[in-house]
Design a protein around this nucleic acid. Structure first.
Lengths: 266, 266
DNA sequence: TGTTTTGTGATTATACGGGTGACATCTGAT
DNA sequence: ATCAGATGTCACCCGTATAATCACAAAACA
C-alpha cells in the first residue's frame, strides 16, 4: 500500500546517490564497488552495466569526492570507502551546505516579514502543508482548533500541539477516533475533543485549522490521474491570515457554529 | 558599506540552492522572493534577472517543493517561506536521503571487508584524507605515530587521537610547535612528542602516519596550477596496509630509525 | 475604447551526460 | 621475440534538459 518499494537495495542506493548529485555512471560504479569491496574496471563494468571505458570517468568523479581510492597498478584497482564513512561524508558536506544557505538567506531576509494581508495562499505537498501547520501552531497564543483525518495526525503534529498546550494554548481537536484519543490525552490532557463532525466524510478529506481566530488553513487530498491516494504530494492546502481575510471569515463561521452546537448538545 | 552590497550573500545562497538541486532560474527566483518577502512575476524578474515569462516555471518548481506559496489573483503573487523554514526543510529531506542511502549500502556491503593486501592506494582531498586517518586511528590498538604540519592538525584529528589514547593506545606525535603542545597535553597527557624531524621542511609538507606498525599513510600538498596552497582539495595521500606492504615497510623503517635516534639523544 | 500588463505556449540554442567505438599501449603466454 | 587479449585514453554521436527568446491571447487598466 506504500509507494513502490525499489526491489533491490542497490537501486535504492543508486537512486539516492544520484539525488545527492552523482552522475548515474558514478552512482552505479560506486554501488558496484561497495558490493565488491575492491575491483578492477572490468569487474565494475560487469556488475554495474556501466560501459567499461566509462568506468574510469566515473572513478575520477568518485575519487575527486573522496569516495573511492585507487591502486596504481595495471590493471588499476578501485576501493570504495565503507557505507558508514560514505554516509558520514555526505552528512558532513550537506550540513555545511545547509548552514551556508541558512546564513546567506537570513542575511537577505528582510527583518520585518509577514505584513498580513487579504488573500488566500496555496501550498502543495504534505510536507509543506505540515510545515505551515506547525508554524501556525508555534505562533498560537490563545486557541488552536484542528480537525484532521487520522492519516495526517503524525507525531510531528501531536508534538506541535503538545508544545502549544504547554504554553497555555487551548486545544480543540476534531475527527479523532476513540483509539487515538487515549494517546492524545497523554500528550495534551485538557484538549477538548469534538468528534465526527467531518462534513465531507466521503470526500478525500484533509485538515481544517484555525489559530487564534486569525489564521486558518484547509487542505484536501487531490488525487490526480497518476497519484496514489497515499502519495505525500497529493495534499493541497489553502491558508489565509488576518481577521478580515476571506478564508478566515468563512472558516471561523463554520467552526464557531460547530463548536457552539457541540456545547448545546452537552 | 552597510546595505548596498547584498550581492555577496545572494550569490552564495543561489550557489547552494543550485547545489541542492534547484535549477538556476528557481534558485534566483527564490532568493529574489526571500529578499522581497512577497512579489509578482515582474517584481521577481527585475530583482533576479530571470526572464519574466520564465518566472512562472521557476515558481512551479518551487511551489512543488513547498518553498513558495502562491496567491491566486491577477497578477499572481508569490510568497517565499522563511530562511529558517527553508533550511529545516532541506535538512529534513537530506537527512532522510542519507539514512536511506546508509541502510541500502549497508545491505549490499559484504560482511567481511578489507582483506588486506599489498598495494599503495591514493586518496584525494583533505576531507577524504582526514577520514582515512581517523579510520586508522579508530582501528588502532597498540600505537599511533603521527607527524603532521600544524595546519592539518584539526580538532577532529586531536579528538581521534584523544579517543585512541583513552583506549590505551600509545601516541607519538611529531612536528608540533611548542605553543600547540600545551593544548595537546591537555587532551592526550602521555603523548610522546618528538619535534622537528620534518625531513622535507621546505617542501609542501603534509602528514606521515603509522598505526600498529601495520598501516601507514603519507600525504603532501600538491599545488596544481590553479590551486591555492590552502585549498582543501590540494592534499593528496597514499596509504598501505599489512606488514608486507611496500609503503608500510619503508615508513616503518623511517619511523623506527627516527624514533630510536630520538631515544639515543635523550 | 485603446493600451499595457500578465500568463501560457512554442521555439531555438546550448551544455551535459549517457552510450559506442577507435586505437595505442600494456601484459602475459607461446 | 611475437602475438592475442586486456587495459586505458580519446574522440565522437545523440538525446535530454535547461537556459534564453519570442509570439500571442486573455486580462487589467485608464
Amino acid at each position: 500500500m506504500e509507494h513502490d518499494i525499489p526491489a533491490e537495495p542497490r537501486d535504492t542506493a543508486i537512486e539516492q546517490l544520484e539525488a545527492l548529485g552523482l552522475s548515474t555512471y558514478a552512482a552505479r560504479t560506486f554501488v558496484a564497488l561497495v558490493a565488491l569491496g575492491t575491483g578492477t574496471a572490468r569487474d565494475v563494468s560487469q556488475v554495474s552495466d556501466v560501459p567499461r571505458t566509462r568506468v574510469y570517468d566515473a572513478i575520477d568523479e568518485l575519487h575527486g569526492r573522496g569516495l573511492v581510492d585507487v591502486l596504481q597498478s595495471s590493471p588499476k584497482e578501485f576501493w570504495a570507502i565503507s557505507a558508514e564513512t560514505t554516509s558520514r561524508s555526505f552528512e558532513q558536506q550537506l550540513e555545511h551546505r545547509v548552514d551556508t544557505l541558512r546564513t546567506a538567506l537570513q542575511e537577505i531576509e528582510p527583518v520585518e516579514r509577514r505584513a498580513e494581508q487579504r488573500g488566500v495562499w496555496t501550498v502543495n505537498g504534505q510536507a509543506a502543508v505540515t510545515n505551515r501547520v506547525l508554524e501556525f501552531f508555534e505562533s498560537a497564543d490563545d486557541e488552536i482548533v484542528y480537525m484532521t483525518v487520522e492519516a495526517l495526525l503524525t507525531d510531528e503534529i501531536i508534538d506541535g500541539l503538545s508544545e502549544a498546550y504547554e504554553r497555555g494554548v487551548r486545544i480543540k481537536l476534531g475527527g479523532i477516533s476513540r483509539e487515538v484519543q487515549a494517546h492524545i490525552q497523554a500528550e495534551v490532557p485538557d484538549a477538548e475533543i469534538f468528534e465526527s463532525l467531518w462534513v465531507w466524510s466521503d470526500t478525500p478529506a484533509g485538515r481544517l485549522m484555525m489559530v487564534d481566530g486569525r489564521k486558518t488553513l484547509a487542505s484536501a487530498l487531490v488525487n490526480g490521474e497518476n497519484a496514489t491516494p497515499s502519495d505525500p504530494r497529493s495534499e493541497t492546502a489553502i491558508w489565509g491570515e488576518g481577521t478580515n481575510n476571506s478564508l478566515v471569515v468563512v472558516l471561523k463561521a463554520i467552526f464557531t457554529w460547530r463548536l457552539e452546537n457541540l456545547h448545546d448538545a452537552e
